[in-house]
Design a binder for these strands. Structure first.
Lengths: 335, 335
DNA sequence: CTGAAAGCGCTTACAG
DNA sequence: CTGAAAGCGCTTACAG
């Protein structure tokens, strides 16, 4: 292995000077610099990142802390993860995956000193991991939000997204618009659920009709259950905003299985999902595409900004989803 | 930060002895050990992984080297990635994501000394990255295979999978079975394409009919194109084995758009996809579920085995997909 | 502008 | 069974 010492010897300088040119930390005379750069070339030297990390107490590694995603493969999730990985790489950081649910194990990992910062996914309204993170003093950024808004986060702008979805449906003449959201289970209560529901209530208020909210699990079966509940409990509803990626296909299939046409009898917008998902379903769903890759990238970026000492207020970023028209929205059925 | 020195002082031993008990590298007298363990507890000491890495020249970090997955979110991919992350964690290793296409950048990363080993995804038949990896002397394992079979790999057993798919269709009375595979583009030629096609030829040989192979891109549009080609070019075909996850939904939709029923006119098995994908489509697709999470886990495991000095031959693992019946396979239409 | 040297927090022969 | 010490390959005050 070629070390900095080898380079220094070949260029007839001290290792300190080599370090200065590699890192650009101090000005170095042009001819000295040239000698060093030549030596680096000739020896094909590459600085050892571990030694650098130890000496500088900065590893330039970020952790992506997420629950076990194996069980619920969600199309937007991988885009998010890849966005974060790219964002980190572009800033010269590495991203490690920490599939950790156990809050104890998380503290262990944090204390090991491997990472400079943490990206926390699937944030809950009250999230014990946030307290651990705060206690560990390791900088972090959230994907999603907790109850209190003074932590750095990056999130989908659900308010704008839902409003635009409802607006789009109103433009087609719908007045009775339901929301199909995600069911919180005992342990998890993503902040998004709460925010989505309140955005929905806001958005439909001008229509002057009572809200229709259905919560189902994020699976095909959940989607079919939603179709049935819509049919049985809310027959006056002519359009639905869905914020539950896993249930999208089931909702479309279930609706048709009940003899109702999409969009003839029921219009559907699937918010915060991928365009690819929309295309897979029959009829192709009109979606509000989640800016998942951008969010991942921005989360990494924001975290690196903090690590590199940008002293501003904690970054708080909201991005709305973008409407991608499909074939699942039309006028309401004649009464 | 609490260091090993702090622990040593509190326990009245040398830091070497502390290291021995933490790592179990040498036997230590029971009472000494007890003192040290107590000190660790009291100080809540956690060994610094960076210092350990530098001293032992083992970082216990693995890299997952993959192309940009953002563009083609493929449901099995995330399961694979998560499987690898879990597998690594369980062995006490961290997994970093390296979204790298550029083969130059890859060498840079490899030379940095951050990782002990590499997992290489989306392996091509002739893969330049493999040569780089070999040159770098960093141990690795492949997901998929190159032309030559003497490198350590973990892969789907396509031969068995395709045979079982064809067998299943024969059991329903099909004799004319087509293959819809993935189109290789200029730069990528996954080894799987080749292996899938030859497995298909083997599997249908006993049927005594000419093969019908269609290659399309891995998108909904590709799937619709396949439906049309089947209809136009291979009217005698009554069943298809699909090995192209991205095209699955398009094939089903496209077939129906041509006025043909699934499975009434055409039976479909989608191989090497997730069960969730099958459920999303209408009708629910019969799939051969890819053992993606297992493969990821096994790849990580195999790599760690090598790193920890298992001297055996390079691990080569093949796992077939498992049949998950849906509603897309039935008897062939009466002639 | 450059260098000598301490130090980052561990592991690991080597001695005893 | 335990310790003193060298060393992993860098960065970074501090001097000059």
């Amino acid at each position: 292995m070629v070390t900095m010492r080898d380079v220094a010897e070949r260029a007839n300088v001290s290792i300190a000077t080599v370090s200065f040119v590699i890192n650009g930390t101090k000005r170095v005379a042009p001819e000295t610099r040239a000698r060093i750069e030549a030596a680096i070339q000739e020896l094909n030297y590459r600085r050892n990142v571990v030694a650098r990390a130890l000496a500088s107490s900065r590893t330039r590694i970020l952790a992506l802390l997420h629950p076990d995603l194996e069980s619920k493969p969600n199309a937007t999730v991988i885009q998010f993860v890849m966005g974060a990985a790219h964002g980190a790489r572009e800033r010269g950081y590495d991203l490690v995956l920490w599939p950790v649910n156990d809050d104890e194990q998380m503290s262990h990992l944090l204390a090991g000193g491997l990472v400079d910062g943490v990206l926390l996914m699937e944030v809950q309204i009250r999230d014990a991991r946030v307290a651990r993170l705060l206690a560990s003093r390791v900088p972090f950024a959230l994907i999603g939000r907790t109850e209190d808004d003074d932590l750095p986060y990056v999130d989908i702008d659900f308010a704008t997204t839902i409003h635009q979805a409802v607006e789009h449906l109103r433009g087609h003449g719908h007045e009775r618009v339901a929301l199909v959201a995600q069911q919180a289970d005992a342990t998890t209560e993503p902040g998004r659920i709460m925010r989505v529901e309140s955005a929905y209530l806001d958005a439909i208020a001008p229509l002057g009709h009572p809200p229709a909210v259905i919560r189902v699990e994020s699976t095909s079966a959940g989607g079919r259950a939603a179709a049935r509940r819509l049919h049985d409990d809310f027959p006056e509803v002519t359009a639905v905003v869905l914020v539950n990626e896993g249930a999208a296909a089931g909702l479309a299939k279930g609706t048709r299985a009940l003899g109702r046409q999409v969009p003839g009898d029921l219009s559907i917008i699937s918010a915060a999902t991928t365009r690819e998902l929309g295309e897979m379903i029959e009829p192709s769903l009109t979606v509000m595409a989640a800016p998942a890759a951008e969010l991942g990238r921005m989360a990494a970026d924001a975290l690196v900004d903090r690590l590199e000492g940008a002293e501003e207020a904690p970054p708080q970023v909201l991005i709305p989803c973008a409407l991608v028209p499909g074939e699942s929205v039309g006028p309401p059925p004649p009464r």
